[in-house]
Each structure stands twice: as structure tokens, then as C-alpha cells.
Design a protein around this nucleic acid. Structure first.
Length: 278
DNA sequence: CGGCAGGCGGTTA
DNA sequence: TAACCGCCTGCC
């Protein structure tokens, strides 16, 4: 176990980061501290924010991963103030959303973990996605150890999922995605890592929406603009697009948000979905 | 019970 | 190439 501290933290709020829909393995520590516990790849961690306004620090207690790993994971070298001000200048209607989710950061997640997680996410809901991912981790992931009051498993390797039996995956309640998951493990083992959207789309069970999530969360292509049912509602609500007009929405995002479209999507998604909960 | 949840693959016209 | 349908599952 190690403790890593990053000082002078700005534009980072843990609930925004972990509940904007980009990741599925982090949950509130549940002890009133505001900390979160979770896993990234092969490491489990507890993370918290200390200090106030001017001197906030990100404190990470982790089973592994060096300072560079966690700096990259939390995207600490990116200037989100600049991103938000640029987006608001180019599209004033996004200001409320960028303010509401002002502490969102796009995590630098492992590519294979992102592929599997977003294959699971299709036609699915978040509680079940989380449950499915924990299931495959505890069955196919390497045991990490006990920490923060529970046991942890690494995200499964491509080899482990390639070797899985589809019937066993079905037993984990993965439904029709079971075959996609095994096939993705096989493909990731036997081919070069996918580098572009076209190559990501070659995976069975990955269509336009999931591919854009993988581009954004797994390959750091910040111009990717995933259009899910929520974004369709948002784009209809804000700009009057027909909900089936995903092409029009994508063109609008590319034109208006450009290289920052992925950030815009996260602000909008978090703002609308969170508000609709009440 | 039908509808839906951060879609996709396959078929049809 | 657009429109439609079925799909594992769990929850409402």
C-alpha cells in the first residue's frame, strides 16, 4: 500500500469524475468522508480531497501504481479551465452544464478494460453494468488483496476472457453480450491494439456509440462524441434535433465543439442525467 | 404485464 | 442506407 498526494488540484470533484458515466468500478467510501474506493486496471485505491479552495490536494491510497500512473489516470496535466472557457465561448448554452459538472475529468483508462466495460454497457443500466463488471473481475481477474473493507480483483486480461466459456459468462448474467466479451478477448490477444474508430468498430458488439466511448475513454480522442439515448434527449431539448438524427447531432458537435466534443458530451450528459434523477 | 436502460447485428425494402 | 426487430436481464 502506498499513499500519493497531488497538490494544487483544480477542476476536480470526485463525484463529478466518478458519476459522469465514464467508469463503473468506483463507489463512495460510505463513511461520510466524501472519499471514493475503486479500482483502475490492476490496482485498488481509496481517493479523497483534502484542503480548501486554494490549496486542495488529491490523496490516493493505492495497492499499486506509481505517481505517473495516477497523474495520468486522473488526467492531471490537462487544463480543464481552458477547456471549459473555450467551450462556453463557442457555445454559450453549455455554460450551465460546465458549471454543474465543473469537476469532471476524463480518466485515462486502460484500453481493454474500456472495450469490455462499454460492450457490457449496451442496452443496459448502470447498476447492472457495475454488477456485471464486478462479476467478471472476481471470476476472471487476478486477486489483488483485501483493502478498504473488501476484497479486490484486477480487471481480467484479454487472455483470461478469451479463454472463458460463453456458458460461464452467461451464468454471470451478462446476457447476449457474453459472446461479444469472449470474442473481444480473443481479438485483443490476436490482433494489434485498435488505434482508430474504424478498427474499434471491427469488434463484434461494438457499434457507433460504444466505439465513440472507447475512443474517448480508452484512446483519449477528445473529439469523440458518444450519442446515447440521453444525448439524443439533450440534443432534442437544447437544439431541436430529431431524436433519430444522430448524424446531424454528430455534425453539430464536430462543428461547434471540435476537439473538445468529448468534454462537452460529458458536461451535458452529467448535467441532464443528474437533474432528471429528482 | 409492457416499457425501458448509456445499442447492436441482422434482415428487409 | 434507413427502418425495423429481437435480444439477456432486472427494475419499475
Amino acid at each position: 500500500m502506498r499513499t500519493i498526494v497531488f497538490d494544487n488540484i483544480r477542476d476536480l470533484e470526485l463525484p463529478h469524475v466518478f458519476e459522469c458515466g465514464q467508469c463503473f468500478r468506483w463507489v463512495p467510501a460510505g463513511d461520510g468522508t466524501g472519499d471514493y474506493i475503486g479500482a483502475a486496471g490492476s490496482y485498488a485505491a481509496r481517493v479523497g480531497i483534502t484542503g480548501d479552495g486554494g490549496t486542495r490536494s488529491l490523496v490516493i491510497e493505492a495497492t499499486g501504481g506509481d505517481e505517473d500512473f495516477w497523474r495520468s489516470y486522473f488526467d492531471l496535466d490537462t487544463d480543464y479551465s481552458e477547456i471549459k472557457s473555450t467551450l462556453i465561448t463557442r457555445e454559450p448554452l453549455i455554460a450551465a452544464a460546465a458549471e454543474y459538472g465543473s469537476g469532471i475529468r476524463i480518466l485515462n483508462q486502460d484500453l481493454f478494460e474500456t472495450i469490455i466495460s462499454f460492450i457490457i454497457s449496451q442496452n443496459n443500466n448502470i447498476p447492472r453494468i457495475r454488477k456485471n463488471i464486478e462479476s467478471i473481475c472476481s471470476k476472471y481477474g487476478e486477486y489483488i488483496g483485501e483493502a478498504f473493507g473488501r476484497e479486490w480483483y484486477a480487471f481480467p486480461t484479454p487472455e483470461a476472457l478469451a479463454a472463458a466459456e460463453v456458458s460461464d459468462l452467461m451464468d454471470l448474467r451478462l446476457g447476449y453480450r457474453a459472446g461479444y466479451i469472449k470474442a473481444a478477448g480473443e481479438r485483443f490477444c490476436s490482433c494489434e491494439r485498435p488505434k482508430c474508430r474504424e478498427e474499434v468498430l471491427e469488434y463484434l458488439g461494438i457499434g457507433p456509440k460504444v466505439a465513440n466511448c472507447i475512443m474517448l475513454f480508452g484512446l483519449r480522442q477528445t473529439d469523440a462524441f458518444p450519442i446515447d439515448t440521453w444525448v439524443k434527449h439533450i440534443m432534442n431539448d437544447m437544439y431541436g434535433f430529431e431524436e433519430k438524427d444522430a448524424r446531424g447531432m454528430a455534425a453539430f458537435a464536430a462543428d461547434r465543439f471540435g476537439a473538445y466534443a468529448g468534454y462537452a458530451q460529458q458536461y451535458l450528459f452529467y448535467y441532464y442525467r443528474d437533474r432528471s434523477k429528482n
